[in-house]
Simulated assay, not measured.
Amino acid sequence: MTYLIDASIFIFRAWFSVPDSMTCPNDHPVNAVYGYAQFLSDFLESVQPDSVAAAFDESLEKSFRCEIYPAYKANRDPAPEELKRQFAQCRKVTRSLGISECSSSRFEADDLIGTLAGKAREAGRCVSILSRDKDLLQLLQAGDVMWDYVSGKQIAHDDVPELFGVRADQMVDYLALAGDSVDNIPGAPGVGAKTASALLQHFDSLDELYENLDSVENVNVRGAAKLGAKLKPYHDQVRMCRELTRIRFDAPLPDHDDVLARQVPNLSALNALYDDVGFGQSLRRQAQRIADSY
């Protein structure tokens, strides 16, 4: 099994859940670093993976998705400077614990995870994606799982239809039709989650749907008689939304032999960072145990 970590999810969770009264000797908040380091250390100690990598988001300013749709994620407030500082420190924690960390100015963490998943499958491995982001469900194949490590909730490939009414490989079209307010993706006006799943159960894909708009009246969904006519003017918009929701598999990865191979922790670098942020002995002792069991 290859484990792919959606690092930003866990950093934001720590930012909001650990009190910002936790500060370093220079009085900067280190709550997100502490929560993330705790999560990553617990994961490494309990799972002891040999194949693992972490993906981080950068600024969206140069993202290819913003070139397609400038309003993409424009509804989000920019990250505070104190959080940006901690993101950089979390990346150091990741490297020091022996895990490759990936990021790109043009591609998002989702695309990096998709590209890493492709490499894992080339090696004959299934993947476990550590996240709770439904966008990543489209990557799941038989034997794969999305795992929210902190809550313990897992969604397997075969669980997706029960939860969303569509197969994992249909999630791209599902999100394109229903839209996603979190990412400011408009979708097709008037089409919500239930309608999107009903359409894809009937037509299987977005392309098949738009090739058969005259048959939409046969779908078992409220307002089906007029739905085809309502969808027709938004063909280009929905196709554009699909380009936003589709995860790429060609993101640039770190240039070394095996980005997925876990390395021995660099305790010297890790302890120097923990000195800088003022952490005590608990995480240091845990890091030593992780190194001893490597």
Rank of each mutant, 00 (worst) to 15 (best):
A37C: 00
P78S: 01
P19G: 08
K73F: 09
L83K: 03
P70M: 03
T94G: 01
A54Y: 10
S41W: 11
S21Y: 12
A32G: 02
A88W: 08
P19E: 03
A79R: 10
L40P: 12
G98P: 09
K73S: 05
Q89R: 13
V30A: 13
D42C: 09
S21E: 11
C102R: 10
G98I: 06
T23A: 02
E82C: 12
T115F: 04
A37E: 01
Q86V: 01
F64R: 03
T23C: 12
F64E: 04
F43H: 06
F39T: 03
C90Q: 04
Q38H: 12
F87V: 05
S103L: 14
L44N: 05
S105M: 07
G35N: 10
R76T: 03
Q86W: 09
Q48L: 09
A109D: 06
E67N: 09
I99G: 00
A71C: 02
S51I: 09
S21F: 13
P19L: 12
F56R: 04
R76G: 07
L44F: 06
P49K: 14
T94A: 02
G35V: 11
N31T: 10
P49A: 02
A71D: 04
H28N: 13
S96V: 14
E61N: 03
L60P: 05
L83Y: 03
Q89H: 11
E67K: 15
P80E: 03
A37Q: 04
